[in-house]
Design a protein around this nucleic acid. Sequence first.
DNA 1: TTGACACATATCGATATCGCTATATAGTGG
DNA 2: CCACTATATAGCGATATCGATATGTGTCAA
Lengths: 108, 108
Amino acid sequence: MARAATTSDPFNAVGDPQRRQIMVSLARGEASVSTLVGVVGLPQPAVSRHLAVLRQVDLVRCRASGRQRLYRLNEPALEPIHQWLGTFAALWNDRLDRVDTILQEEEP
Amino acid sequence: MARAATTSDPFNAVGDPQRRQIMVSLARGEASVSTLVGVVGLPQPAVSRHLAVLRQVDLVRCRASGRQRLYRLNEPALEPIHQWLGTFAALWNDRLDRVDTILQEEEP
DNA sequence: TTGACACATATCGATATCGCTATATAGTGG
DNA sequence: CCACTATATAGCGATATCGATATGTGTCAA
């Protein structure tokens, strides 16, 4: 059994620098494929391929707008990574728990 | 230019499930290679290889103890991943900032 | 309808990565 | 010194992944 496919494992999907760059770019808001081609220095098919990978792990979603496709982040799909990181930051998580409690008390 | 090597990019290094499992296991504390072989269901050379990868990106460190080598996590090496995630969690970060403030006020 | 534009998909060669098997290195006990 | 244990490294075949090129699909505009 080798590494889980990039198209099924968000960790692996995010293992590629170009895909991370695309995601950072999308953090600013929706963008068309051609816009992203301008951001990343890759030919359009390569970008479309990366977007397809990110779509399959649900890290990005897209909607049609005329002949363009506007891609946007799907932040909730980052949850597995957040959780995994949380495994190592017990101290940090403790603080977060306290935060939740405190914030809930603050604005009920 | 393809994907950065697993031995140089922590994101890619962590893209492998077995390596993540090893890291989760190490979150409990130091462990020898043979212990980790028991945890992950892989032959010893495979585990040593994974550990070598994690060592090269400084995600784990090891010390000799007799004929064993005890591996442990090096949490600070997770910082790049934390930061990258932070890019997308603006809302979350806002809450964290508030937490810091609140906690500082609580216990000066 | 025809042509141009925006994007997706298919295919290919080069490279990376995985787990496996065999072997090398190093510390320990007799 | 010699076996034994614990771990690292080397080489191999199978598979995955990347970027590039070529082509398919769908939308708009004239």
